[in-house]
Amino acid sequence: MSKEFIPENLAADFSEEEPIVELRHIKKEFKTPEGRVTALYDIDLKIRRGEIFGIIGLSGAGKSTLVRCINLLETPTEGTVLFEGRELTGIPEKEKRIARQSMGMIFQQFNLLWQRNVIKNILFPLEIKKIPKKEALKQAEKLLELVGLSDKARAYPAQLSGGQKQRVAIARAIASEPKVLLCDEATSALDPDTTKSILELLKRINRELGITVIIITHEMKVIESICDRVAVIDNSRIAESGSVSEIFSNPKSDIGRRLILGDRLTDRAVYDNMIKNFFGGEN
């Protein structure tokens, strides 16, 4: 009897599934000598467990501040941040630090420790978490293999290329087995090929380890290639959000159109294709 209700129940469960990260009415103001500057205004966002969520906007739109509100590197002026249904805003600093261990983060400039070699960089978060050395080393070696840099364990960051540095940073960020990986313009300092391989790695981490990935970027290509859903942020607010296919096929906001269509128009491949089609395949 009850079996018939299972599909319905599952469907209901899915739609009402608790978001892994939820932002409610987040507002962030900065005090500057010129007065208060609003970096984020009334941001509402629900990020589902297991998805790759993109946040796109032009520089200065407030993306970086937004991602830092999620792990509370920035304290929102107003609003609530929930992680797995638990309110993070307003909890004591010590508990925030523990919560951050469940959220890895990677950066545009990689931010590796220059004076530590690769394996010790990956060990860093495990030291913070006070994982026994032997166990930590095993874990770090496993991660190094995952990101394909086993031969670079004793190298120092200065000896690595940008892409390699970001791979180390990714291994380090997921070493403490976080549930969420925050990526702040993680591919913006990399060339297109390296960007592609880093995005593939992020996708693999998402699929294989089940880590929810939140990506901040100004590049539409990044969103297009790996994100499930996207929020377009402009002028400190969310202009629109939805599934990537939805937003790409029918951007409703001005900024969404500009980001998507503008990108399309300047995309070399598309441009070449247009020329080709126009001249009927000659040339």
Binding site: N71, L73, K94, R97, I98, A99, R100, Q101, M103, G104, M105, F107, Q109, N111, L112, L113, W114, F124, P125, I128, K129, A169, R172, A173, S176, L182
Partner: peptide
């Protein structure tokens, strides 16, 4: 940035 990275990992 390195300090921020350490903070993001929950370092005291």
């Amino acid at each position: 940035g390195v300090i921020e990275a350490a903070k993001s990992m929950g370092a005291s």
